[in-house]
Design a protein around this nucleic acid. Structure first.
Lengths: 192, 192
DNA sequence: CGCATTTTGGATGGGTCAGTTCAGAACTCT
DNA sequence: AGAGTTCTGAACTGACCCATCCAAAATGCG
């Protein structure tokens, strides 16, 4: 047999995800990725083939992680509206907490490279769909529990909520004003 | 006096706006800009100093143009909700009509370069604020006219509407499914 | 007409880009 | 211990990047 890999590929993807998340796809160079992961060029290319492949891997990882995160926020018991409110407010605070205002990797991927690379578009779409589906299930529960009017289209409401979140991630990139973002949350929750 | 400029600087900014809009900031090279505008490197740099300056000029132009466009859509007489609905649906159709799914230049700017370049962030912020303000005025009129409940915070509703539009521009980058976007519009209008 | 001034195209420069190559080190299994 | 395989670091490749420079062309004014 042969020499085993000296580094943790999982940790490398994580580090790459961080680098892409902070700088976007185009502005993150392979040099940045080497420094971020602590790996040499050869190791990176041997393990991940290309910058684009590594990006997709990072995006996949991001989608998994955020799915878990979303399930934790949105899977709780109790009244639905406070759950959604807390979920959205967490997104606001997370975004404002970091100095680089890094928003959502999937949103960046969709906007920056989604229209050019179908594979990336697929990954972003899957990420979006996962959240929309989770929201829809939660909203339907709210309708059964009497928290949300059963007359409304749960899927459409889930899509609107997701769009509002995407909007938060967009606006949050260029503002420090928390109110700008919490207004979106408040109006959204009030609209459900 | 001296030799007058052989090209129309206005048209050049317009062409540059188009190039940046289609490809984003990073992925649009100076070569692309030369080809898009039909100008030589010297002329471009002589007139616009740098790629970044030209981008800002294009973004400024975009903001002006979209402000006019938004005023046309949102400044009409009559019931408020159909006006907002038509405005949002136009954004959906515009986005789906183009093969490259180019969304909104200000959204791209905010997401791709906003967090790195404060000047770009300012321009995007100004663009966003302009639309939010227009929406707020319209929503307040709707409240006076009895189309929208006067109990709700008009500014927050305007910000939510804007966030939903930004979300449409994000999701629209990676989907051809019109329903995904019209659901957002329908739920949004229903929520006002 | 000719001078001053600006534009313009093309060549060029220094730097960085993504990706490759290769030799030697490292490791597992026999 | 030795064979066989894989990993790794550093140098390298060719292309492209943004920006500059320069000489020639073009113009308006005296």
């Amino acid at each position: 047999m042969a020499r085993p890999r000296q580094f943790d590929a999982d940790a490398a993807v994580e580090a790459a995800m961080d680098a892409f998340w902070a700088g976007g796809y185009g502005a993150t160079s392979t040099q940045d990725l080497c420094e971020g992961t602590g790996l040499g060029r050869s190791s990176l290319y041997n393990a991940f083939t290309s910058k684009s492949h590594l990006y997709q891997e990072a995006l996949r990882r991001y989608a998994e992680r955020s799915r878990v995160d979303q399930a934790a926020w949105l899977g709780r018991e109790g009244p639905v509206l406070p759950i959604i409110q807390a979920f959205l407010l967490d997104a606001v605070d997370t975004q404002l907490a970091r100095a680089d205002h890094r928003g959502c990797l999937a949103v960046s991927a969709a906007v920056e490279v989604g229209s050019a690379e179908p594979d990336v578009a697929s990954l972003a779409r899957a990420d979006f769909d996962g959240l929309v589906e989770t929201l829809r299930a939660l909203i339907e529960r709210g309708q059964r529990d009497g928290d949300i009017s059963p007359d409304r289209d749960a899927l459409a409401l889930a899509r609107l909520t997701h769009a509002a979140l995407a909007g938060i991630h967009v606006v949050g990139r260029i503002t420090d004003d928390r109110r700008r973002l919490t207004d979106i949350v408040d109006a959204m929750v009030e609209s459900l």
